[in-house]
Design a protein around this nucleic acid. Structure first.
Lengths: 141, 141
DNA sequence: CCGATTTTCTTGAATGAGTCAAGATCTCAC
DNA sequence: GTGAGATCTTGACTCATTCAAGAAAATCGG
């Protein structure tokens, strides 16, 4: 679990100014995996006191642009944020309750990175989303 | 290019009632690959005259549930619809202009269908989205 | 340390895709 | 042809996200 000092270092490395809202949001994204914006706003307010929702939106955009967090948005879901931004991992999404879990790229054969016909697009990322039922929803059904 | 009769057959095969809005929307999805809802509404109105936007939303949901069209929604985009619903193909999305092209699953090794660790989810689909720049945007840059 | 500069945050309003609800209309099985 | 149930129309509404303008704070050169 990174400390406030670590978060400050991350921001500086990314050439971003260090502000309280940014530290709070960065901590929230690390503490709440795959949280949506509202949950992040709540968490930030708990740790910081007042923070405008607009500030959180701005911070999340800045952090995403800087590569410190990754924004994901499965079909039918609001935007969610992932603290594992560096590695190219993927996600499993529950069709029933929307729960999200991480899935590592199978090492050795990165099959998902090459398209069979790239249509002359210059591809820089392959995003994989697995759809199914999480354990809880399987047993509830 | 399917005819109105073909569309009628598709609807009946899916146990859906045959109505003018449904025929118009189905034709629009086939004529406009990867169109968003607004484009489909426009196309439907051109061919049918008045159709409420609510009817188009309802029809698209019914067609999606029946498996006649596929709904896709890349991060940061509004919902789009794909007439190739049966095969499990994927998409390349241009980061700059949002253009979408189809990418077939490489035959023989369906790598994208198995997660390295499924977290006990019951996975039924793997969705792959390739991100990059389309030819037009590459040359414009 | 201090002011200047530029970024970032606050406040408050607006946008727009998508949904909800109630009643009218149409499809289809009989 | 007729009835039951699905589907469409109209119109209002939700809510995640964005826009705008000014206030506050972070960094940098001195």
């Amino acid at each position: 679990m990174p400390t406030t000092l670590d978060y400050e270092g991350m921001l500086r490395s990314a050439r971003l100014r260090v502000t309280r809202p940014r530290l709070g949001v960065l901590a929230a994204v690390h503490n709440l995996p795959h949280a949506d914006t509202e949950a992040i706003i709540d968490a930030a307010r708990t740790s910081l006191g007042d923070v405008s929702h607009q500030a959180v939106y701005d911070v999340l955009r800045a952090l995403t642009a800087a590569g410190l967090v990754r924004r994901i948005q499965p079909t039918g879901s609001v935007a969610r944020y992932d603290s594992r931004a560096a590695d190219n991992h993927h996600h499993v999404v529950c069709r029933s309750c929307g729960a999200i879990a991480d899935v590592d790229c199978a090492v050795g054969h990165a099959p998902c990175l090459t398209a069979s016909d790239d249509h002359d697009y210059l591809i820089d990322e392959a995003e994989v989303t697995y759809w199914g039922l999480c354990p809880a929803c399987r047993f509830a059904a």
